[in-house]
Simulated scan of single mutants.
Amino acid sequence: MFDLDFRSRKAIYVQLVDKVKQLIIKDVLKDDEKLPSVRELAQQLTINPNTIQKAYRELESQGYIYSVKGKGSFVHPSKKMENVEELKKVREQLKKLLAEAIYLGMTAEEIESLINEVEGGQQDD
């Protein structure tokens, strides 16, 4: 479930954060679903528990998961209205990237194709 590339230049905890976010966004991990414990996941991935803890803290600070003392970490129920600020940030980043893509010669059709690819990927997985 959590495939990590140990040869990547991207930090392991960042890869883990990205993977969990992807699984949540694609609805593979459901609202209030319990995540593996830090110790359990560290053993499974054969990495330091501190790395898992760091990833979980980052996910919690971004609002993707929450923890219950003595119980573990869980997927935060998606509340689209509460993500207004996050959506603003993503929208601004997307505008910058689209402007750059258009400047570099990407067409509206290519952009639309990418959007369809992303939407299709979310439904397929």
Rank of each mutant, 00 (worst) to 15 (best):
F2S: 04
D5Q: 10
R9K: 14
R9T: 11
K10D: 07
I12M: 11
Y13A: 05
L16E: 01
V17S: 03
I24E: 01
K26E: 10
D27A: 08
D27E: 14
V28D: 06
K30Q: 07
K30C: 05
E33D: 11
L35F: 03
P36A: 11
V38L: 04
L41H: 00
P49C: 05
N50K: 08
Q53G: 11
Q53V: 07
Q53M: 13
K54Y: 09
Q62E: 15
Y64E: 05
V68Y: 06
V68C: 09
G70V: 03
G70T: 04
P77Y: 10
P77Q: 06
P77A: 06
S78M: 11
K80A: 10
M81L: 15
M81F: 13
N83E: 08
N83K: 10
E86I: 15
K88R: 10
K88M: 09
E92W: 09
Q93L: 06
Q93S: 08
Q93Y: 08
L94M: 14
L94I: 12
K95D: 15
L97D: 12
E100S: 11
A108Y: 00
A108N: 03
E110K: 00
E110G: 00
I111C: 04
L114P: 02
I115E: 06
N116Y: 05
N116D: 07
V118H: 04
E119S: 10
G121N: 12
D125C: 08
